[in-house]
Nucleic acid binder design. Structure first.
Lengths: 165, 165
DNA sequence: GCATAAATATTATGCGCATAACTAATCCTA
DNA sequence: TAGGATTAGTTATGCGCATAATATTTATGC
């Protein structure tokens, strides 16, 4: 691949990261949330109570990040942390009522953001976009032990990447 | 748009950001570079000397970020900063010989990263990927005065977004 | 059963990028 | 030409996420 093309791809990904994150931050700010916290709330809303290592895996960030996120969301009253009964090391994280309400707001906001993001793209492109993005992600994912994952075809929907849950 | 689909898109973008950035960091580390600095080197290699406000515009990050990036790259001996002759406020940034050599290394690395990233995707998808990503970026770009930019078709190649240069 | 390995979570620290507040220089207008 | 607005750059500060090191608990191998 020539440099022009390579740079177009890498640069586009870099810029998309910056802008999408900035836009998300702007939308989440009125709810008192910072970027990243919404992912934790949505994950808890999706799967129910979980321990932090599970959240770390689901969110794709490291345990120390989860520690900080949970601490701040707990301080905001949106989640509750309790020691796991069967494992004294682990702490179970779950949404409070306030957190559930907030998660619902985030869901609406998330739909608006996604719609805004894909504006102007043909429907078929939008349909295969998640698969494409997941393939790209899988190709550069160093966490999941360098497993290539991409077989060429568009990746299936759903939680394709979940392994150890 | 329903939440499932919206979340698939937003989450995929978020994860791609994290992973692509992490992979880039891993590749750049042996060169003594941190993520973001490579973009500055490549921009200087592409367009020659520039003042920081131009770099800020080209890289899509804010002036304070450019201040820090240039300071560190200057400390590393890769760039040189000199006062602009025609404008006492501005400082001209240019590559040193060491910086040019480093930029060449980054270029190779950038090609490898792009190839790795799009592994397994059909060639036609790869071809339209930059345009798709730029459309997404333009849709959520709050810096360029909320101009929608996306007309539906895949966006043209090259420096589509450059305006004030 | 005990020593060793693995897992869970935390603290400390560092980088990238952001915004806010500030200085200094240039531009523009009246 | 004098003065307010704009522009270029910096400093201070904060957040997200990362790695490294640590404590504590659980699992494992002999």
């Amino acid at each position: 691949m020539d440099f022009e093309q390579a740079d177009a791809i890498n640069q586009a990904i870099r810029l998309l990261s910056l802008r999408h994150r900035a836009r998300a931050a702007a939308l989440l700010a009125p709810l008192g949330l910072h970027t990243g916290q919404e992912a934790l709330l949505l994950e808890l809303a999706r799967t129910g109570p979980a321990i932090q290592s599970q959240l770390s895996e689901a969110l794709g960030c490291e345990p120390p990040s989860v520690t900080l996120m949970t601490r701040k969301l707990e301080a905001g009253g949106h989640i509750r942390r309790s020691p796991a009964p069967s494992d004294k090391r682990a702490s179970v994280v779950e949404l409070t009522d306030s957190g559930k309400a907030l998660a619902d707001q985030v869901k609406q906001l998330w739909c608006a953001l996604a719609e805004e993001t894909v504006t102007g793209l043909p429907a078929e492109t939008v349909a295969e976009l998640p698969g494409i993005l997941r393939t790209l992600t899988g190709n550069v994912d160093t966490r999941r032990s360098r497993r290539p994952q991409g077989d060429g075809s568009v990746v299936q929907r759903g939680s394709a990447g979940r392994i150890g849950l």
